[in-house]
């Protein structure tokens, strides 16, 4: 079978690049929502920070799965 196209080097990096798209959008949404909430209601900023950290951590975990798997597998 003839080889028409081939990729040299680690394909894992492409996988990680794809895996980072979703968390990138997700982190942006989380921070955008936090900024908007605390701009509309500045006194709720401290209360919302807990959920900011939780949401950021949950989303960022997905990106880090991709990062670790890119090195591990």
């Amino acid at each position: 079978m003839d080889v028409i196209a081939a990729i040299e080097g680690s394909v894992n990096t492409i996988g990680y690049g794809l895996a980072a798209i979703g968390p990138g959008i997700g982190v942006a949404l989380v921070f955008a929502a936090y900024i908007q909430a605390s701009a509309r209601q500045p006194e709720s900023a401290g209360y919302n920070r807990t959920w900011l950290v939780l949401g950021f951590a949950l989303v960022e975990a997905l990106a880090l799965f991709g990062l670790v798997l890119a090195f591990a597998v």
Partner: peptide, 8 residues
Amino acid sequence: GSVVGYLL
């Protein structure tokens, strides 16, 4: 910084 650090 430490959120990402802890997760990693």
